[in-house]
Write a protein that binds this DNA or RNA. Structure first.
Lengths: 215, 215, 215, 215
DNA sequence: CATGAATGAGGGTTCATTCAT
DNA sequence: TATGAATGAACCCTCATTCAT
């Protein structure tokens, strides 16, 4: 679990702990039921404190949602970058990137459900997540690919931006759609990712035919 | 528009037209607001008939949702298959498949929103869509790849199932996540798809190095 | 009682009866508890129907208040005028006017409480009542005095407007403040009114000293 | 302003200053919003101290209301008496009394609103104010009239008690209803009062016809 | 002692559902 | 049969009050 609620002593004054507990509880309940079906009553119960605090601290249910949406976005990209070692073999690196996508989306499954559930209804949130989170992850992939191009382990004419975008796209897709939504077995997804990684890296091998159209 | 509501003469008895109008209206409202935030009143209003009919025809709001979820799943895969011509060049075919994903998900955007919104909350619906819809589309892709392997336009040792799964995965991802959720510009998505198609087809070119691990 | 609620058959469709019952019940509850302390729950209970109707019919508690405020203002002035016969003796007429003030304010005590309670908080309502209701009653008094001046039963130099304003002022004061707020015994109030009527009419007797300043 | 809140140094222990600040703030807030709509939070904020003190000092919101109601009643009548000089001409004196009513009710408008707002809901408070305050003011008017009767500037058969009651009645009415509730222009009210004063004093002029019934 | 964090009862309101018409 | 009036459960939220600090 990446998302557990530390318990809270009733009556005791401890604002920060309660805020955390509420955000954690809300993340879980929003993920399980969806924002609208979630009740502040259940959130407060799970957080072990009173409903009123949701309104005092966050200005209401909607404000609590905002807090949930903001709560992890800061660290999640850094964690992502930190988790991927640099490899000599570009296949290993692309493979690692894709597996990390799967891992991070599986680990933060609840947050992801909340984010995407909101994005489905509120286009602005969708765009925000797309640009704030995914673009930053795509930029990371771009850097990694560029390094391989520079080192000669990928073809010099590689469309770095396009490939990076494709990799992060399928990474998110496999992780989110496959694991979170469709609940495909993890092995199946991992096999797909490996196949994809191998195919794409082979296509970008240095010294091969041109990567331009109509080779 | 792929989803318009034919109007209905109020007071007139015409069950089938009314059911359709309700399903269309519900699809739109569920997509815009999400299931829980949608009200039967708005759905009935948009359909041009009374709230009571939702309960008489579909047994309530939940039943109407089920009807919406079922309403297109029958035809949508056949339409998908019919829309993709067979090409001599495997790149053209993979490219066509991916563009059709983008097109169909964009066209049926509302249904897709409803489906995925539900899938996020109810795992069973997610699994159902995954197996009923996506597996059938993946099967189609498999057939097309197999044909190219048989014709010698793709390498004989191609991992057809894995590649098909990857292609349909990124097709859905690009279409749904990119176009529907993150609202990326269509050209950007098309470019990504083309890049991906070219890379993967090049990796599977016949006569090249083995497609097995550690080539 | 001028304000009773006809009962309502539960479940039966009878919008008008329910609207009436709600307005009557609300008048009573608002009068007893004040607007803010009144609960829609109690109002609905007394009206014998469900809370939801308050919001469907009147758009909420506030709308119900508006309905209460409007409910009698149309008829109340006409009733007032109709209740006062024309007398030959101006004392009898002024006396009758003052007693009618007392009577009408006592009879519609609940409405009056609601109106004044609102006026205390919302200045606009106060002004509205002052101009809509009281000005019209003062106009009536003016007409009656003018008739006596014309007939010669009051001095020709009588400041009709000023006296009329004073009479309706003390009429309302005695009726509202005395009977409704301070709950003075009715006889005491009636004695005061009679004293006042006699004094003022004597001061306006025809043929006496001038009614101008520094007589 | 007759009702301002002296500021309070936060954190400092100064019970009396804090009690005063709370009573002043509460008077203002109760007057503006009505007792029920007023919040202890706003009162505490305006008083510049914490909500808890309301309960510690006054035993809660209700207790604070009681304190507000009691806060001025002691001095207000004395101030009223002191403000009215003795005149030789009874008209001047009656006129002065009526103007002082208007002045005192306008000056202490906020207290008056609170008192009357409560009286509308709680009959006991109405009766209390009626007897405690108004009876004492009426007694003062009685004394003043008696003095004029004794001095021969008013007719010896004057119904002192009745006239005094009428004068204080219309004084309160004009002041409260006219100025506070209906917000009539001050000049209009003053004109009414002068007219009334002149009429009633003329009716009580010594040497005129009997002031007994059916003269 | 003063503060403000925490509580929880109860408020107005919404809305799916039922049912008289 | 289709309508919309009526229902009532449950929601989010407010706020007086209590109590740890």
């Amino acid at each position: 679990m990446g998302e557990t609620a530390g318990d809270v002593i009733p009556g005791r004054h401890d604002r920060e702990a309660r805020e955390h507990a509420l955000i954690d509880a809300a993340t879980a309940v929003f993920a399980e039921r969806g924002f609208d079906a979630a009740t502040t009553r259940e959130i407060a119960e799970r957080a072990g404190c009173s409903e009123g605090l949701i309104h005092r601290y966050f200005g209401g249910k909607r404000g609590l949602l905002r807090a949930v949406l903001r709560s992890r976005s800061a660290t999640v990209v850094e964690e992502f970058a930190a988790a991927i070692p640099e490899y000599d073999d570009p296949f290993d690196e692309v493979h690692a990137i894709l597996r990390e996508y799967l891992l991070t989306l599986t680990t933060h499954q609840q947050s992801v459900r909340v984010h995407l559930g909101c994005a489905l209804i509120d286009p602005e949130i969708g765009v925000e997540i797309g640009t704030l989170l995914e673009d930053r992850r795509a930029a990371l992939v771009r850097e990694r690919l560029a390094r391989h191009v520079a080192r000669g382990t990928l073809a010099p004419d590689t469309d770095v931006a396009g490939i990076a975008s494709a990799i992060s796209g399928i990474g998110f897709a496999a992780g989110f759609v496959g694991a979170v939504v469709f609940q495909r077995p993890r092995e199946e997804i991992e096999r797909t990712l490996e196949t994809f990684a191998r195919a794409i890296v082979r296509g970008l091998a240095p010294g091969g035919a041109s990567n331009e159209r109509r080779a």
